[in-house]
């Protein structure tokens, strides 16, 4: 038990540095994510070549020289396409996760608070939704909405809602029984304020872990959708489609076409998981000293 703690004040930077020291893996995750986000934001300047320009002479050029990671069948630079592809992948991942987690959290909170038949109904609907795998549901949704970037995001976001809402709901139910929530009631705090001050912040930790874990799976889903031709349409480069276009034909003859997009996907999934774990711990004041 930590008692008699001195009450030194730390600046924000002190705290960041301190946390960084405690969670080296989290820092690694943060660096990976920063690099990808940076690449995505400034893709046009960072990318050495035009990702769309074809060059018949450079078809399936090996990595090295001008083509850092080689070129594809149409002679387009893989490295530049990966950088532009980061835009699509991250936009889909962040967009879908934010939308899915946001709606999920609201629905979970409502279920935990309103309860009764509303809760019963929503729970049964989410159970039906959970019975279908993420990818299958996303497939059905994109197939009916048609392939485009916003539709891909929506298609991936909707299947995320049930999981998130269930986690939030169960958290809300147990938090509502906590004595500190009772104490808040005893001082006459309104239910809304209790939800905002006492309940929601304490469901944040599991929500962040869930969201970052899902960040990875949304990237994979996007890749799978694109792989199946239902993702973001041509000519935008998407990691999933880069894999799908080359996997079957070129895995033996031009393995770089498979390795590098695969590596990019794995790295982002890995980085987001590391960052999520560290964030969860760092956001908890109990872990702060």
């Amino acid at each position: 038990m930590t008692t008699n703690v001195n009450t030194m004040k730390f600046s924000f930077m002190d705290n960041v540095l301190y946390q960084a020291k405690r969670y080296p893996l989290g820092v690694a995750g943060a660096i990976i994510m920063t690099v990808f986000v940076f690449a995505a934001l400034f893709a046009t300047t960072v990318a050495p070549l035009d990702p769309f320009s074809t060059n018949a002479k450079a078809s399936l050029a090996k990595p090295g020289g001008v083509f850092l990671m080689g070129a594809d069948m149409m002679g387009r630079d893989v490295f530049s396409r990966l950088i532009h592809g980061a835009r699509v992948s991250l936009a889909v991942a962040l967009g879908a996760t934010c939308i899915g987690s946001g709606f999920g959290a609201v629905i979970g909170l409502a279920c935990g608070y309103i309860g009764g038949w509303f809760d019963l109904l929503v729970q049964r609907v989410t159970e039906v939704m959970q019975a279908l795998p993420l990818l299958v549901m996303a497939l059905v949704i994109t197939a009916s909405l048609g392939p485009s970037l916003p539709n891909t995001i929506i298609a991936i976001a909707i299947p995320l809602i049930p999981t998130v809402s269930r986690v939030v709901r169960s958290n809300v139910l147990s938090l509502r029984e906590m004595p500190y929530v009772e104490a808040a009631k005893a001082i006459g705090m309104s239910e809304w304020r209790i939800a905002a001050i006492h309940v929601l912040p304490n469901t944040l930790a599991p929500l962040i872990v869930l969201a970052t874990a899902q960040l990875g799976s949304t990237i994979l889903t996007e890749a799978s959708l694109s792989f199946l031709g239902l993702g973001v349409p041509e000519p935008y480069p998407s990691w999933g489609r880069m894999l799908s276009e080359s996997a079957a034909e070129y895995v033996r003859t031009a393995p770089w076409l498979v390795i590098f997009p695969g590596l990019a996907i794995s790295l982002v999934v890995f980085g987001s998981n590391l960052l999520g774990d560290a964030l969860r711990d760092a956001l908890d004041p109990r872990q702060r000293d």
Partner: peptide, 18 residues
């Protein structure tokens, strides 16, 4: 509510950790 208050048993769960 200003006139009546409560103190709980468990000193851990009766204070919001955040």
């Amino acid at each position: 509510r200003r006139q009546m208050q409560i103190v709980f048993q468990d000193p851990f769960s009766s204070l919001n950790p955040r």
